Measured scan of single mutants.
Amino acid sequence: ESETFDVELTKNVQGLGITIAGYIGDKKLEPSGIFVKSITKSSAVEHDGRIQIGDQIIAVDGTNLQGFTNQQAVEVLRHTGQTVLLTLMRRG
């Protein structure tokens, strides 16, 4: 069981404050995608409180990250504006 949710964030001096990890899993058993690996102290993400380590980032400002490499996803996140809309999925 999984839930998908949107989080809109405004960057602070730390930026968004997440590091991400790309993961290619076994299609049947484990998900592939871009996941939140860590959250920086005092960052926008930590202050917001809704995003957790292990959440999958589905889209950034409407750009679907399906099939993106870790590096491609980093580039998408790097080129966002001051306000960012993240679409995430959390597995229950």
Rank of each mutant, 00 (worst) to 15 (best):
L86G: 04
N70D: 14
I39E: 01
R90M: 04
E8K: 13
S2F: 15
T10M: 07
V74I: 14
I53Q: 06
K41R: 10
E75Y: 05
S38L: 04
D61P: 00
T40A: 14
V60C: 08
A21L: 05
G54Q: 02
D48V: 04
K27M: 08
L29G: 12
Q72C: 07
I58Y: 02
T87F: 00
L85F: 08
Q82Y: 04
D26E: 12
S2V: 10
G67A: 09
V36M: 04
G15D: 11
G81A: 03
Q71L: 07
R50N: 07
Y23A: 15
V13R: 15
E75R: 08
Q56S: 03
D6V: 14
I39M: 05
Q52M: 10
K28I: 13
D26P: 12
I39H: 02
Q56A: 04
N64D: 13
D61Y: 02
D61F: 01
F5Q: 01
S38V: 00
E3F: 15
G49Y: 04
G92Y: 11
E1P: 06
R78P: 00
L29Q: 14
G92N: 15
S43R: 09
V36S: 03
V60Y: 01
E75Q: 11
S43G: 14
Q72G: 08
S42K: 14
V74F: 10
I18M: 12
A59E: 07
Q71A: 14
M89V: 12
I34H: 11
Q71S: 11
D55P: 02
T40Y: 07
V84H: 02
S42A: 10
D6Y: 06
Q52Y: 03
I53L: 07
I24R: 14
I53V: 14
Q14S: 11
R91D: 09
N70F: 14
N12G: 14
T63K: 13
E8G: 06
G22V: 09
K11L: 04
N70R: 14
Q66T: 11
G25A: 11
T40L: 12
R78V: 04
H47A: 13
Q66K: 08
Q82F: 03
L65S: 03
R91Q: 14
K37Q: 13
V60D: 01
K28A: 11
I51P: 01
R91A: 09
Q71H: 09
G92L: 10
F5C: 00
Q71N: 10
R91W: 08
S42C: 11
E3L: 14
L65W: 03
S2Y: 14
G54P: 03
K27W: 06
G22D: 15
K41Y: 04
E46S: 11
S32T: 15
I51V: 12
E46G: 09
R78D: 09
G92H: 15
E75D: 13
Q52W: 06
T63N: 11
N70M: 15
T69A: 06
F5K: 02
D55L: 00
T40I: 11
I20L: 11
L85I: 11
I58A: 03
H47I: 15
T4G: 03
K41Q: 12
E46P: 05
L9R: 01
G22L: 07
A44T: 10
K11E: 04
I53M: 06
K27Y: 09
K37V: 05
K28V: 11
T80Y: 01
L9Y: 06
G62D: 04
F5M: 05
L16A: 04
Q56C: 05
V60K: 00
Q72K: 10
T10I: 09
G67T: 08
V74D: 14
A73K: 05
T19C: 08
L88P: 01
E8P: 07
S43P: 05
Y23K: 15
V36Y: 13
D26M: 10
M89S: 13
I34V: 10
E75F: 02
I58W: 02
Q66Y: 08
L9P: 00
V74L: 13
G92V: 14
D48Y: 03
G49M: 01
G22P: 14
E1T: 12
G15C: 05
I20T: 12
D61Q: 03
A44C: 12
E1V: 11
L85A: 13
L85H: 14
Q14M: 15
K27D: 15
R50L: 07
A21Q: 13
D26Y: 10
L88V: 14
L85P: 01
S2R: 10
L85M: 13
V76L: 14
Q52D: 06
I18T: 03
I58P: 01
K28N: 13
G92C: 10
Q82P: 14
L86P: 02
V60N: 00
Q14C: 11
A44W: 07
G22F: 11
L86H: 02
G67N: 12
I53C: 10
I53G: 03
N12P: 12
V74R: 14
I57S: 01
A73H: 01
K27T: 11
T40E: 15
I57Q: 02
V76C: 14
G81N: 09
Q52L: 07
K11D: 06
I20V: 15
S2G: 12
K28P: 13
R50S: 07
T80G: 06
N64G: 08
I53W: 00
N12C: 09
I57R: 01
G17W: 03
T4C: 09
Q82D: 14
V74T: 12
K37N: 08
T80H: 01
T40S: 13
I58H: 02
V13D: 14
E3I: 15
V84R: 00
T83W: 01
E8W: 07
S43A: 09
S43F: 07
K27N: 12
G67E: 11
V13Q: 15
I53K: 08
N70V: 15
Q52H: 11
G49I: 02
T83L: 04
I20A: 06
Q52K: 13
G81L: 00
D55T: 00
Q14G: 13
L77I: 10
R78Y: 06
V76K: 10
G54A: 03
G49C: 05
I51Y: 02
G15V: 02
I57N: 02
T80S: 10
Q82H: 13
F68Y: 13
G49F: 04
Q52V: 05
D55I: 02
L16T: 04
S42E: 15
L65Q: 01
T83V: 09
L16V: 05
E3G: 11
S42F: 12
T63R: 13
R90C: 01
S42L: 09
S43N: 06
D55E: 01
I18E: 02
A59W: 03
G81I: 03
D55H: 00
T40F: 08
G25K: 09
T83Y: 04
V7I: 12
S42G: 13
L16Y: 06
T69M: 04
Q14H: 14
E1A: 09
T19H: 08
E30F: 08
L9C: 07
G33C: 04
Q14F: 12
I53A: 10
N64I: 08
E46Q: 11
K41L: 05
I57V: 09
A44I: 13
V84Q: 04
E75C: 06
S42W: 12
Q72F: 03
K11Y: 04
K27Q: 13
Q82C: 07
A44V: 12
T4L: 11
I57E: 03
Q72N: 07
T40H: 13
T87D: 00
L85C: 14
G33D: 13
I24M: 13
Q14K: 10
I20Y: 10
T87E: 01
Q72M: 10
I39P: 01
D55Q: 02
E75N: 10
R50V: 06
L86Q: 04
R50H: 05
V60H: 00
V84I: 06
S42P: 08
L9G: 03
G67P: 05
G15P: 07
I39C: 02
K11G: 10
T19E: 14
E75A: 09
S38Q: 11
D61S: 02
L86C: 03
G22T: 14
G54L: 02
F68S: 08
Y23M: 14
N64K: 11
S43K: 06
L77C: 01
Q82E: 13
V13G: 15
V36R: 01
T10H: 13
Q66S: 12
A59S: 12
T4H: 06
F68M: 11
L88Y: 01
I39A: 00
E30D: 15
L16D: 02
T87R: 12
G92M: 11
Q52I: 06
E8Q: 14
S38E: 13
D26I: 08
A73I: 07
H47N: 15
Q66G: 10
V84E: 04
E8F: 09
L9H: 00
T87P: 03
Q72Y: 05
F68V: 10
G62H: 08
E46R: 08
R91E: 10
Q82S: 12
I18D: 00
K37E: 14
D6R: 11
G67H: 11
I24W: 12
L9A: 00
I57K: 03
G81H: 06
D6I: 09
Q14T: 12
K41M: 06
V45L: 08
A73P: 01
T40P: 05
L88M: 14
K41I: 05
V7F: 04
Q82A: 10
G62N: 07
A21F: 06
T87S: 08
S38T: 10
V60A: 03
T10L: 05
I39R: 00
D55C: 01
I39F: 07
G17C: 03
L77A: 00
I53E: 10
I39Q: 00
A59V: 02
R50K: 09
L29I: 13
E1D: 15
I58R: 01
V45M: 06
R50P: 03
I51F: 00
